[in-house]
Structures are given as structure tokens and as C-alpha cells.
Simulated scan of single mutants.
Amino acid sequence: MERSTRATPAQFAEWLRQQLTARGYDLRPRGGGQTKFADDSGIGRATISRILGGHGATDTRVLALLAEALGSPLSEVLVRAGILDATELDAVQNPGTTGRRITPEQAADELGIRDEQARRVFLSMTATLQRETPRKNGEGNLA
């Protein structure tokens, strides 16, 4: 069995902390950055605190709001949050490269996603990613 390459909640927290700090949010105690970002993003302050505390996030609405607030592709947030790893994301975004097309349910089965909540998140995210148009940077590469 392959070892998972998915990000951990602690890695997601560190990534989000870096993203917020780079955007000028003061995350020091009493800095007000968490509250300001919660207000700016529409995500509850307790949820922001939980994510930054390393407790993760799997709610698709929260991850979509987070991507929008950061100006990041939802796909990047999903990988950073540990919902998908880069290989799974590639398989979802490029389903024809394997020589056969499978349904999201079949992909969940093949990936061994059995937990009901994780399966719902995976299926929801797969549907979202299949609708997402890849963005290209100025050099013609996918961003």
C-alpha cells in the first residue's frame, strides 16, 4: 500500500498562516488578523482559529470561501488542506490520461476512500474540480 502524500492539518495551518501573513494579516495574539480575515472571507472566526490551530478543514463551503478570499485556485486549497494529493488532483482534472474514464464513485473506490464523510467531500470536490477551468499564467503554464 502506498504511503499517503496528502498534507496534514498542521501543514495546512502553516500554509494558511503564511498566506495570511503575506497578505498583511497580523496573526500575533491580539493582532486582530484572524478576526479581520474572518470578516473579509465570510468564514467564522472560530473556524479560522480551528484551522490555524492545526485541526484541519473538510467543509467544502469553507474551503471554497478560503480559496476565493485568498485568490487561489480551489484545487490548490484542496491539495494544501489534504483533501486530495497532487496525483489525485491530476487524475480528477485529466481523467482521459489513464486511457479510460471512470466515475467519481469508482475513483473513490479505487483510492480506498471508505469513510462516509471523506467520500462525500471527495465526490463534492471532484464535481467542483471537473467544472473548474484551468487558469494559465503569463507563460502559458497552468497556474
Results as ranks from 00 to 15, higher is better:
residue 102 I to H: 12
residue 137 N to T: 11
residue 72 S to F: 05
residue 107 A to N: 10
residue 90 D to I: 07
residue 134 P to F: 15
residue 87 T to D: 06
residue 15 W to L: 03
residue 47 T to S: 06
residue 1 M to A: 13
residue 21 T to C: 06
residue 24 G to R: 00
residue 8 T to L: 04
residue 91 A to V: 14
residue 111 L to R: 00
residue 131 R to K: 03
residue 90 D to C: 08
residue 20 L to S: 09
residue 14 E to Q: 06
residue 133 T to P: 10
residue 55 H to W: 13
residue 138 G to K: 15
residue 120 R to W: 02
residue 50 R to L: 15
residue 94 N to P: 09
residue 137 N to W: 08
residue 80 R to C: 05
residue 29 P to S: 00
residue 123 L to T: 05
residue 53 G to H: 03
residue 10 A to D: 14
residue 19 Q to G: 03
residue 72 S to V: 04
residue 111 L to P: 02
residue 47 T to R: 07
residue 39 D to T: 09
residue 126 T to N: 05
residue 114 R to F: 08
residue 118 A to F: 13
residue 48 I to M: 05
residue 95 P to F: 02
residue 23 R to M: 02
residue 39 D to N: 08
residue 55 H to A: 05
residue 72 S to A: 14
residue 63 L to G: 07
residue 65 L to Q: 03
residue 88 E to C: 12
residue 104 P to K: 04
residue 34 Q to H: 10
residue 112 G to H: 09
residue 84 L to M: 02
residue 133 T to Y: 00
residue 41 S to Q: 11
residue 128 T to I: 15
residue 86 A to F: 09
residue 128 T to M: 15
residue 117 Q to M: 07
residue 27 L to C: 03
residue 76 E to D: 12
residue 141 N to C: 04
residue 38 A to E: 03
residue 32 G to N: 07
residue 21 T to R: 04
residue 19 Q to N: 00
residue 100 R to L: 09
residue 128 T to C: 15
residue 13 A to I: 10
residue 28 R to M: 12
residue 47 T to Q: 06
residue 43 I to K: 01
residue 55 H to S: 05
residue 52 L to A: 00
residue 140 G to A: 03
residue 130 Q to L: 10
residue 63 L to M: 11
residue 52 L to H: 07
residue 25 Y to I: 08
residue 63 L to R: 00
residue 69 A to V: 12
residue 76 E to Q: 10
residue 47 T to V: 05
residue 136 K to H: 14
residue 6 R to F: 02
residue 128 T to F: 15
residue 134 P to E: 10
residue 44 G to K: 13
residue 139 E to W: 02
residue 11 Q to M: 12
residue 110 E to N: 15
residue 99 G to Y: 07
residue 23 R to F: 08
residue 111 L to S: 04
residue 5 T to R: 09
residue 100 R to K: 06
residue 125 M to L: 13
residue 45 R to P: 07
residue 85 D to A: 01
residue 136 K to E: 15
residue 20 L to M: 02
residue 14 E to W: 05
residue 109 D to W: 09
residue 11 Q to P: 11
residue 36 K to C: 11
residue 101 R to K: 05
residue 94 N to T: 06
residue 31 G to M: 02
residue 137 N to E: 04
residue 108 A to V: 11
residue 118 A to C: 13
residue 122 F to W: 01
residue 108 A to P: 10
residue 51 I to S: 07
residue 7 A to Q: 04
residue 13 A to D: 11
